[in-house]
Write a protein that binds this DNA or RNA. Structure first.
Lengths: 329, 329
DNA sequence: TTTCTTTTTGTAACCGCTTACATAATAACA
DNA sequence: TGTTATTATGTAAGCGGTTACAAAAAGAAA
């Protein structure tokens, strides 16, 4: 059953059926009724791929919105986390006749600026429930990237931090470590919280005492005071699992400044798998999240929403992959 | 850049390009080389939608595999959980020129039986890591439905039990309840575990003592002993959050046999949103999971994998919706 | 009633790919 | 070398929609 058959049954042209299907203006109410009836009678559902293919002539306009904080560090040619993610988005956009524009995610959002925009990707951990509510209110298709807000039902693409962290901890335990510390960023960022939860749960499941320290990775200030505190209260750990690669590298630098050797004295594992960690000394063990894929999945999901009006939002989480390198045993 | 342009550059017909792209046999190695070169030069990627549309003539064969336990209760016209899920699969299959076949998920799997099968959906909480490994080994595209196995990286579609449970608990707390008990099925089923985790975490976050009882929902034996135990040790709770609707209804029946009124004395909330709960007395408050959507999402994901060879597996979780009915205040 | 607008409908080309079938080139054989 | 079998390539018709444009119908104005 396709649009042509429907057209025949309703005794109109396929163009008219298409118009009805797309709520186009220029259809008389009588024919609309007639077509709608046939449509209902045969429970017609449109082939989404045909639709997509045919409507490829119109490009989809999508805004990639990032917070000022991230925007400042966004180098589209670089290999940093969000650079790669945005690259993934743009790549997928290419394949989907979509044009993207990178826009700062402001606090006072303005409907005017969204004229002609078909969908929005909110990238990064700074996205708030307020943002989401704004876009939902105006009915703008929306996907969060690398952020999840449990209290708001909205599509999102994230990495599976919980299981990644869990894997890291289990790995360290398998190396006979017991004193495993977690150093993390602000826990109001979902990504960090998720990894933290995975760390804590896995430690507890193995009857080990979780011990964590929070480090403000945005300002990248000196980590020595934190380490001092840790050494005094907790002693020197056998292994450190960090929230992300930047923190992990900072950890290693700081340990070295205390003349503690990595990985001989302490094993360090990061998270994200950014390029920089590969060339760091010692090269960084990490949980690699498929950043590029994260971006492209988000764009594809957005397109799905824009074109198929998928009603049920989903949370898509990407598996991470453990990469053992020089910073850990 | 499309197949026609490539054809022009390589000075061959589009059919030939298509053949190269699909590793078809009948292409001389010289032309294949030539085309491959152009393809690489222009970094050509095929439009997946066009491909799908054009190859609609070949149907995709998918096996819907369910455990014997579930198969026994599977009534395709019914409204039970897995019936609706399978319905969702079949519906989506219709839209995707796929033919499905329901097959029992055996323990001793046989490669022979999978001749001509393009992909497999493993439905239900009985799917094990062994099953998954078998299919991965033979390179069979695979999606788990309503099951997640953290230790194996494989695509899956599940409901977000954690946040659903969390929502339920928060709701009950907002009604000024403090003594909130959780009655759940076997926790080696991911779905139950996930909901359990959400319950425990949310109770603790609100400084309430989590209290849970396990009930074997498969045999549906008498729940009175369990209740007796609960009343003796814990007293009568103010609210009970159950792992799923079946258990919730069993709970209500049992409470009634103790002359405890629902919802006046105890509020009860289930999970799943099966049809039966709507017509139960009192009608069941529940967290509705979009079962139909779960099925169709799984099929669509499978098709994506079969046709686009998506390499990174993802976990897709569906949001649940709280439906307040008569069994809770 | 005629003419000019405006609205409604239909026709046909196109989206980017696959593939049945026809044709050309090559290989095999007598 | 001529004939036939085999393999390589091309042509063109779809797949199921959208939409520019043309044509017809309906309304408004003269």
């Amino acid at each position: 059953m396709n649009i042509r058959e429907i057209a025949k049954k309703a005794d109109v042209s396929i163009a008219t059926v298409s118009r009805v299907l797309n709520n186009s203006e220029n259809v008389s109410s009588s024919t609309r009724e007639k077509v709608l009836e046939i449509l209902k009678k045969y429970e017609f559902e449109m082939d989404p791929w045909a639709k997509r293919l045919a409507s490829k002539r119109n490009v989809t306009h999508v805004f990639i919105m990032v917070s000022r904080r991230i925007l400042r560090f966004l180098d589209l040619k670089g290999k940093e986390f969000y650079s790669v993610v945005v690259n993934g988005i743009q790549n997928a956009a290419n394949m989907n006749r979509s044009v993207t524009k990178i826009v700062e995610m402001e606090t006072n959002l303005d409907e005017e600026k969204l004229k002609g925009v078909d969908g929005v990707l909110l990238v990064g951990g700074d996205t708030t429930a307020e943002h989401v509510r704004f876009f939902k209110k105006i009915g703008m298709p929306l996907v969060l990237v690398d952020q999840y807000i449990p209290t708001v039902k909205v599509d999102c693409v994230v990495s599976n931090g919980y299981d990644g962290a869990s894997y890291a901890v289990k790995y360290l335990i398998s190396q006979h470590f017991k004193k495993i510390v977690h150093i993390h960023g602000f826990l109001n960022h979902f990504g960090f919280k998720d990894r933290y939860n995975g760390y804590v749960a896995t430690m507890e499941q193995n009857n080990l005492l979780p011990k964590d320290y929070e480090y403000n990775d945005e300002v990248m200030e000196d980590m020595k005071p934190l380490m001092d505190k840790m050494f005094n209260i907790y002693g020197v750990p056998e292994a450190i699992f960090a929230s992300n690669d930047s923190i992990a590298m900072k950890v290693i630098e700081t340990l070295m400044s205390f003349h503690i050797k990595v990985p001989e004295d302490v094993s360090v594992i990061g998270f994200d798998g950014i390029e920089k960690g590969k060339h760091f000394t010692p090269s960084l063990s990490t949980l690699k999240v498929p950043m590029h894929e994260m971006g492209s999945l988000a764009l594809k999901r957005l397109i799905d929403i824009v074109y198929n009006q998928d009603v049920y939002p989903v949370k898509i989480s990407l598996f991470t992959e453990f990469i053992k390198r020089g910073s850990s045993i």
